[in-house]
Design a protein around this nucleic acid. Sequence first.
DNA 1: AATCCGTCTGAATCAAACG
DNA 2: GCGTTTGATTCAGACGGAT
Lengths: 377, 377
Amino acid sequence: MSAVRLLNELSDAPLQSEWLDTILKGDCVAALDRLPEKSVDVIFADPPYNLQLDGDLHRPDQSKVDAVDDAWDQFDSFEAYDAFTRAWLLAARRVLKPNGTIWVIGSYHNIFRVGAKMQDLGFWILNDVVWRKTNPMPNFRGRRFQNAHETMIWASRDQKSKGYTFNYEALKAANDDVQMRSDWLFPICTGGERLKDDNGDKVHPTQKPEALLARVLMSSTKPGDVVLDPFFGSGTTGAVAKRLGRHFVGIEREQAYIDAARQRIDAIKPLTGADLTVLTGKRAEPRVAFVSLIDTGLMAPGTMLHDSKRRFCAKVRADGTLSSGEHAGSIHRVGAQVQGLDACNGWTFWHYERAGGLSPIDELRRIARLGMERAGA
Amino acid sequence: MSAVRLLNELSDAPLQSEWLDTILKGDCVAALDRLPEKSVDVIFADPPYNLQLDGDLHRPDQSKVDAVDDAWDQFDSFEAYDAFTRAWLLAARRVLKPNGTIWVIGSYHNIFRVGAKMQDLGFWILNDVVWRKTNPMPNFRGRRFQNAHETMIWASRDQKSKGYTFNYEALKAANDDVQMRSDWLFPICTGGERLKDDNGDKVHPTQKPEALLARVLMSSTKPGDVVLDPFFGSGTTGAVAKRLGRHFVGIEREQAYIDAARQRIDAIKPLTGADLTVLTGKRAEPRVAFVSLIDTGLMAPGTMLHDSKRRFCAKVRADGTLSSGEHAGSIHRVGAQVQGLDACNGWTFWHYERAGGLSPIDELRRIARLGMERAGA
DNA sequence: AATCCGTCTGAATCAAACG
DNA sequence: GCGTTTGATTCAGACGGAT
């Protein structure tokens, strides 16, 4: 990945393949319409929040709070904001792969309108995730609770899309072996990470922390995936995507933001190889048929199997099925039937006699898998 | 305050003054229309969430999850739900005093639609407040983040309403002298607080914890205020209002819920005078995920870790897992695997290079915790 | 009498591969 | 495309019985 290229808005011709790892300059919807349909894996969107500020706010020491009063955050009405939201969400949905997912971040000013519109357009919400800020701005007037969080909506393209990426095992392992919750704690973007211009002023008023984007991308993308950010701003999404070995596409109108983002991303060194490996669980392991344990001699026909407490037993037949009294069938079916349940994982339910006691047959499956790997299966 | 009275639905005549500390039986909108306009100080509403469940869900042990499948939570479409939402919000707004405020609680299934409709009708959002659950239900299939929070919207009647009640100083004093944030941590309602019927089954599927309502009412009402709950259910709002010396009005359709709520509220002894001070909950020691060391920059991906005697080493990956030869997983799993043990505390086992030698990564956890405590984790 | 261990449960939009 | 089969998957806390 060399220097970030910039594609200007002089044309509205469809883009072919030259758009990976670039910034498209121009209007969000127009630029989205130039991208091929069903071409990106994940969208991260940080749209204007439509803050409806009325007059200046001062701190107790009378200093003025540097509010978000940029022109791009001004809308005439809820209706105008809704129309804008609908337009970009529709355009974004077209370029999303069928198993792609979208993240949208917002505050109470806009997130309810955005979330409702996402549901209206057919997106299927998977989670809302709360970014809890360790260091939020205080409420200076003492008239409300300190606004200490923002909300992200994570959604699949359709209700039917079940094949989206979610790196469950990796997140769980990273979280002390308990599943990752929907509330995340991060500091806001400050210090050396915050982009400043030559005057020392912040380049962008709402620059998001890289740690937030890192968790978003580590949870819902694989290395090599394409990540689109239709409100690229100072390029946090691109910087984190590049560092984590993902491709990015950014869309941005303002030249000052584009310049800062390009310089920032060019300076990023991607992580490589094993550092990027995503931990996967049993789901990703090759499938082993129970009968192959018999084929390979790990299990002899006629062996008696038991559950861990020896309440039930069944006999292994030469064809890879079990028989137990009146029941016969797969290890799963018989395990379910003897317990009177609808379903059962036979691999963990059934045990075999070994020196020292019972062991689950899942242990033999592990051994079989090692053999498969050596054989390059 | 004597026993809770029940006003039936045999009439739709306007109510005068006999409705304080009562339960109105009947349809939510019809009952609201009987109340005088501009007569209540605060509304707390826990409307149906419109969960759209599809089939059964089983736990890993094959037991069935007792889902919320009650008829009152079923709507034919988003349009039907929106119409319902609009109707009750409009009726509620009429009875709210000009300086009154409203709380609505929901999950990602409904809260975006409700919030958008509130804005459409002229309510002015003051905060969204996140209820973080200490003990949420897990995600059993490992396909999403654990849904560990619900969202409350707190809004005034109009943008212009500036005279609403917010007990800023009391909340701050109760929160170790820092402003109360918009993310609150409470357990779900279980144990002795959870109402059970004669069979030991829960009376209501979604009973809210009293601690949550207590913070709501302590923050936005004064003693003697009138609190309305248009979806009264098992009467948590009434129980807490009575205990805190506030008046309540509840609206509920189902006789079983009404019976349980009356009995419950009758047993409440109100606090008096000086006892109406806020009770502060002691915070537990926050748990730190290993990945948060990476998120906060305390640990870089690619770092090599060793045990204290340098017999083993492992490399930190970007997702917060370790890899060591053939082993990969959490700091604990890999620590156990390299030693051939079943378990290991990765925090004290693994060390990182520092000027002067190796230091346990637990030291970095202590540093991370300092930041979390400031955020009230 | 404590402690431990197994069991149960909570607002849930919770599969994927194969034939 | 669709029905069938395989088999992956849970955290905190309350409670009751056993040690």
